[in-house]
């Protein structure tokens, strides 16, 4: 039995005729202590998938289970590093992290909670910015706060939704190293959403591609067999690296890129009825009826792209 288990999960937004199917038949198993990366296109439904695991959304069909218990609501045992940081702008770095610590470790003494908060701020190298507001921080710093907040909650599973996508390449590489280091020390179960295959290869034990939407679904998993600690420079020469990268990309660019598109075509069927001569000769009369009945049909066709 896997630690986190999604089976036959489906999710659409909207109801009835306007329903928009985002995820179809999602099956995912994550073991305890494992680092899984999900790589997918923008708008494919990655945030939706993370929200289903965190409990912020409920699946239309199928089940999401953590520790064999069905997830029915969000909770601090599943910490989320949100795509857009989601720090509370009226609180300082310290207060943002403390809010989470205070909530999770209710029966700790104030001193202990304070110490714990400061430890995690230090862990992400933000001690100097401890009393600053999020608006005074750079994007990379905000993401570190968000990471510190999630880790300080000591969650059972850490869900990261494109934590580094909004950052420049240098900051991104920096934070990737930090995430790797933190994970090695804390050994949390992690689900990382990303749109960067290299990032996934650097960090994850296993990569699962998500096909393009609508009706996105998970593709075949790829194990990352490269030894840890992984080094960005050396990795490029690893024969495994090319193979892993090739496998993920071939799904994403090939089968997984297929947007299931539908077009509605108006079809005019051939007119086989004879001309109706009882209508009289074609003349100048303006209210003359059409003499041929055309059969017009609408047809929905799935196209390959």
């Amino acid at each position: 039995m896997a630690f986190l288990e999604l089976s036959h999960v489906e999710k659409s937004y909207g109801k009835g005729a306007k329903a928009f199917q985002v995820l179809t038949d999602i099956n995912l198993q994550v073991n305890k202590g494992e680092f899984v990366a999900i790589v997918g296109y923008s708008g494919a439904g990655k945030t939706t998938l993370i929200s289903l695991i965190s409990g912020l959304l409920k699946p239309d069909k199928g089940t999401v289970k953590l520790n064999d218990l069905e997830i029915v609501e969000p909770g601090p045992d599943r910490a989320v590093v949100f795509q857009n940081y989601s720090l509370l702008p009226w609180m300082s770095v310290y207060e943002n992290v403390y809010l989470a610590v205070d909530q999770v470790f209710k029966n700790w003494t104030a001193v202990k909670k304070k110490q714990h908060t400061d430890d995690y701020i230090k862990m992400v190298n933000l001690s100097a910015a401890r009393d600053k507001k999020p608006s005074e921080l750079s994007g990379g710093m905000r993401q570190r706060v968000s990471l510190a907040r999630a880790l300080a909650m000591d969650p059972q599973i850490l869900l990261m939704d494109e934590p580094l996508s909004a950052l420049d390449a240098l900051t991104r590489a920096n934070l990737q190293d930090e995430i790797e280091k933190i994970w090695r020390e804390a050994r949390k179960t992690v689900v990382l959403i990303t749109n960067d295959v290299d990032e996934a290869i650097l960090l994850a034990d296993r990569i699962i591609p998500l096909s393009a939407g609508p009706s996105a679904t998970l593709g075949p998993e790829v194990m990352v067999t490269i030894e840890r600690p992984r080094n960005r420079k050396q990795m490029n020469h690893d024969p495994n690296y090319k193979e892993i990268r090739g496998k993920v990309l071939s799904f994403l660019l090939g089968e997984g890129a297929k947007k299931r598109q539908f077009v509605t075509r108006r079809l005019s069927l051939p007119d086989i009825e004879p001309e109706d001569i009882s209508q009289g000769m074609p003349g100048f009369s303006s209210n003359r009826q059409a003499r041929r009945k055309k059969e017009i049909k609408e047809e929905v066709v799935e196209i390959d792209s």
Partner: peptide, 27 residues
């Protein structure tokens, strides 16, 4: 919605959600 999501993930109580999230965001 982000702020509300934070409150939900942290499972803030009703009063805490009101005073730490809703009120400051509405101020």
């Amino acid at each position: 919605q982000d702020y509300l999501n934070v409150a939900k993930v942290l499972k803030l109580s009703r009063t805490k959600t009101l005073f730490r999230v809703l009120l400051p965001a509405t101020l």
